[in-house]
């Protein structure tokens, strides 16, 4: 799994933020590239550039090995992301890819929980396998 962060700040400001603040939260500093999108041209294409504020909103895109976007989430600035949920989604997309779509992950799935095997036999029978409680942790 590779990570790229991106904002409208310059790469020099990224360095200062890493060196003076983030390295105090993450030992050794930020391990992934911190990209600069001054002008928001990349953000515009991804639909996350807020022209009025001149900044990018909190958009997070899961991109598979073929370069296809499998999922995204966009939040307004004051609310932070849930990293565990992002990891869970990546694990689910990886499972689906590994099984070439033979398995699908129902609501509330996380590693270790049952998957569904879509097919003619399952039509109208999901209720026998998947219970509402399983949507929750």
């Amino acid at each position: 799994m590779e990570i790229l962060s991106i904002s409208i700040d310059s790469m020099f400001v990224h360095k200062m933020w890493n060196d003076h603040e983030l390295s105090k939260m993450v030992s050794g500093g930020i391990p992934f590239p911190m990209l600069s999108d001054a002008g928001g041209r990349v953000g515009k294409v991804y639909g996350v550039y807020d022209e009025d504020a001149g900044v990018e909103t909190r958009g997070r895109f899961i991109i598979d090995p073929d370069g296809v976007i499998q999922g995204y989430e966009v939040l307004t600035p004051p609310v932070g992301r849930n990293v565990s949920e992002t990891i869970r989604q990546i694990q689910a997309f990886q499972l689906v890819r590994e099984t070439k779509g033979a398995e699908a992950t129902p609501s509330g799935w996380k590693p270790g929980k049952m998957t569904l095997k879509p097919g003619a036999d399952l039509v109208g029978k999901v209720w026998e396998q998947w219970k509402t409680e399983m949507a929750f942790d």
Partner: peptide
């Protein structure tokens, strides 16, 4: 560094936009 997204083909990649350095969340 100069990064091109397509260099990451073949890998799972998480692309995270955020409002700005030295902000609070």
């Amino acid at each position: 560094v100069e990064i091109r997204l397509s260099e990451y083909l073949g890998k799972w990649t998480l692309l995270c936009f955020y409002p700005g350095d030295f902000t609070f969340v």
